[in-house]
Nucleic acid binder design. Sequence first.
DNA 1: GCTTACAGTAAGTGATGGCTTACCAAGATT
DNA 2: AATCTTGGTAAGCCATCACTTACTGTAAGC
Lengths: 103, 103
Amino acid sequence: MAYQDSLTALSDPTRRKIFEAVAVEPQPVGRLAARLPVSRPAVSQHLKILSNAGLVQAKVDGTRRIYAIRQQGLAELRSYLDQFWDQVLASFSDEINREKGKP
Amino acid sequence: MAYQDSLTALSDPTRRKIFEAVAVEPQPVGRLAARLPVSRPAVSQHLKILSNAGLVQAKVDGTRRIYAIRQQGLAELRSYLDQFWDQVLASFSDEINREKGKP
DNA sequence: GCTTACAGTAAGTGATGGCTTACCAAGATT
DNA sequence: AATCTTGGTAAGCCATCACTTACTGTAAGC
């Protein structure tokens, strides 16, 4: 639901593969499981975690569920990291200013 | 060492706090531990993981080690996510083009 | 209506991971 | 030189987690 859950979700290699596969092309659960070395229930469980993190969402199509990336979840994670990026850039320019003021 | 390790490193709440604290201001291990609800060895272990992930680096100062953010590690993680961001934007414009072509 | 396809849930298991205390190494301080 | 400060390492413990098989539910297809 927030960037915390997104980071937890993407920390697992299998979930990353699922996320990456879904990013390339929205897919039903069965197809994802077929291309992965784990069982279909395992994929379902991973998708639940990714879904709760807001990183993917399912579009129901009969008995099938087509999972796709949810861009807002990705955006939240990006802005979390951007916050640090800004801080890094800020302290870097601070250092430059300190260096300039020295001699 | 790569974005995978960065995601694993930032998936833990305590490590996130350490990373966030170090982002605000470079600090020695002891000070970090004093402000956290875990022991100093625990902080050391977390810093090792963050360091291996390339997210922080230590500057040795006598017996003290001042930990700070390593911007390149953060950059790698950002670009990993940006890759998906680009894909999301691409498929979004694809959809618009499909919609335009329909009627 | 019966069966088949698709997918989520439940329960159990082995491995991983974060924490603690105890210990060790090395530079600072007196 | 003796001690204190600082911090990394070792070993062990408990909780969490990813995975499996078995089961349930629901929509399609004949």
